[in-house]
Computed example of a mutant assay.
Amino acid sequence: MKKIVASIVAAFALVSAPAFAQADAASTAAAKELFDAMNYRTLMTGVMQQMSQGIGQSMRAGAEAAIKGNPKSTPEQKQQELAKLDTELPAAVGVLQGAMNDPALIEDILTETLPLYARTYSADELKQIAAFYRTPIGAKMLATMPKLTAEAMQIGQQVAARRITPLIQKLQEQKQATK
């Protein structure tokens, strides 16, 4: 039994080793060069601003769906919950927007993302990617990326909500039926 466990542990270590591999100095330097070519701080600031603008709408949609879909609540209770949502949501959205627009968040993301790029791509590959981002089409891609990312996230949230909301309602109905 000990040999089997040891074999499993050894196999896991070998399979997962690349995920924990350290980047070499050349790849790390090239990743920094890439982030400079991408104007990464500005790019991420734009992405976070786009996301923070839509966060209130997303939170409201999710909360409204939960309130309206609650089979335990009477119409009057649902109205009260919606009114409460109207008063409490702006403060919650403000806190989240503040966190998302905090420059320290961007620095943390940059610091923690840099090693990922450095160990995923070779120094040469990172230099080629950086060269692409310095071309007109690469620059256009970077300029449009925050808006595209935010819109793609909204689409993803809408698609997920269309699928998840009926599931939540069904679970609430099942829970209610078992009581």
Rank of each mutant, 00 (worst) to 15 (best):
L89T: 03
G94H: 07
L148T: 06
L171G: 11
A83V: 03
T120M: 01
T45P: 01
V9K: 02
G69P: 04
T135C: 02
L105K: 05
K179D: 06
I155P: 00
G156Q: 11
A13M: 14
Y121Q: 00
R162T: 01
L85K: 13
Q158P: 04
T111M: 12
Q174V: 06
R119P: 01
T42E: 15
A25H: 05
Q128Y: 00
T87L: 14
T149A: 05
I106E: 13
P115T: 05
G54C: 08
P90Q: 06
E125K: 08
Q50V: 04
K147A: 13
Q157H: 06
L89C: 05
M145K: 04
S73I: 11
V95S: 08
Q169S: 13
S7C: 02
A92L: 12
A92W: 02
Q128T: 01
M1W: 11
L96S: 10
Q176S: 09
Q154G: 15
Q176V: 09
Q57I: 06
A160L: 15
L171A: 14
Q158C: 04
L167S: 09
Q154H: 14
L105P: 03
L43V: 04
K147N: 07
P166K: 08
Q174T: 09
Y121T: 00
A99M: 15
G69N: 06
G46Q: 02
T165G: 13
M100W: 14
A23Y: 07
Q176T: 08
L89Q: 03
A150F: 12
I168Y: 11
Q158D: 10
A37G: 03
E88N: 09
A104L: 12
E173T: 11
A21D: 04
P71D: 01
P18W: 03
S52E: 02
R162Y: 02
Q174W: 05
M145Y: 10
T178Y: 00
I137Y: 00
K175G: 05
M44T: 03
K68F: 02
G94R: 06
E125W: 01
A104D: 13
Q49V: 09
T149C: 00
K140R: 15
G54I: 08
I8W: 14
A6R: 07
P136Y: 02
L126W: 05
A152I: 04
D108W: 03
A6H: 06
Q50R: 12
P146M: 13
Q176P: 14
L85P: 15
D108A: 11
D102H: 12
L171D: 12
L85R: 10
P166V: 09
A17Y: 11
